[in-house]
């Protein structure tokens, strides 16, 4: 079913909307959650929460790209779930490694204060806009989808060191972007 038809089902408040969403995107959404939570049980729970949030969001929202809209929801739901977990369990996935990598982007461990300069989301979009497609895709795969380096390397048929190098360069450029937009050193 076309995305527009699924969205119409949501607007019509038809429960078929969730069924069609699950059929078309369930597997993909679960894999996104699994990368973060590393537990099938937790990922399935996150998937259910995602359907519920989507149901509550549409209407009034009419997503431009339904798949991306759903992906962002399940990412946030999974991260909320991760935060709610016990500290021991939180340390089990790859998120700590990703967070450590992202810390390199923050010059003195401070981020721009909302209202000062550009918002963080705008800075990130501006940064991604300027990135070359290949480095942008690697960055998004790693830091949005939580893919591990090996997975990215295999997907693109390149070496893991190339992926690491690309990520390191992107982080350096993001650091510059963040500094330019109001991070006080």
């Amino acid at each position: 079913m076309e995305d527009s038809a699924i969205i119409d089902l949501y607007f019509a408040r038809s429960e078929e909307a969730i069924k069609e969403t699950a059929t078309k995107y369930g597997k993909m959404l679960k894999s996104v959650s699994l990368r973060i939570l590393r537990s099938i049980e937790d990922a399935e729970e996150a998937l259910s929460d995602t359907y519920m949030k989507t149901w509550n969001s549409i209407p009034p929202t009419r997503p431009n790209i339904l798949s991306a809209f759903l992906t962002k929801i399940i990412r946030n739901v999974s991260l909320d779930k991760l935060d709610a977990m016990h500290a021991d369990k939180r340390g089990a996935g790859m998120i700590p490694a990703i967070l450590d990598e992202l810390e390199e982007c923050i010059a003195d461990n401070r981020l721009p204060v909302p209202g000062e300069g550009m918002e963080l989301r705008e800075i990130l979009n501006s940064f991604l806009e300027k990135e070359k497609p290949e480095s942008r895709k690697i960055f998004v795969r790693r830091y949005f989808f939580g893919s591990d380096v090996k997975e990215i390397a295999e997907f693109y048929g390149i070496g893991e060191s190339k992926v690491k190098m690309s990520l390191a360069r992107s982080r350096e450029r993001l650091k510059v972007c963040l500094e330019e937009e109001g991070v006080t050193v």
Binding site: M28, P63, N64, I65, S67, A68, F69, T71, K72, R75, N76, L79, I95, I98, L99, L102, C105, I106, L111, L120, R121, L124, N125, L128, P133, R136, K137, V140, R141, Y143, F144, F145
Partner: peptide
């Protein structure tokens, strides 16, 4: 915060991967 904010990037970048 930065990791969370990456979740708010434009949908076109997410869609590109999907």
């Amino acid at each position: 915060t930065l990791f969370r904010a990456i979740g708010e990037i434009d949908e076109k970048y997410v869609s590109e991967i999907l």
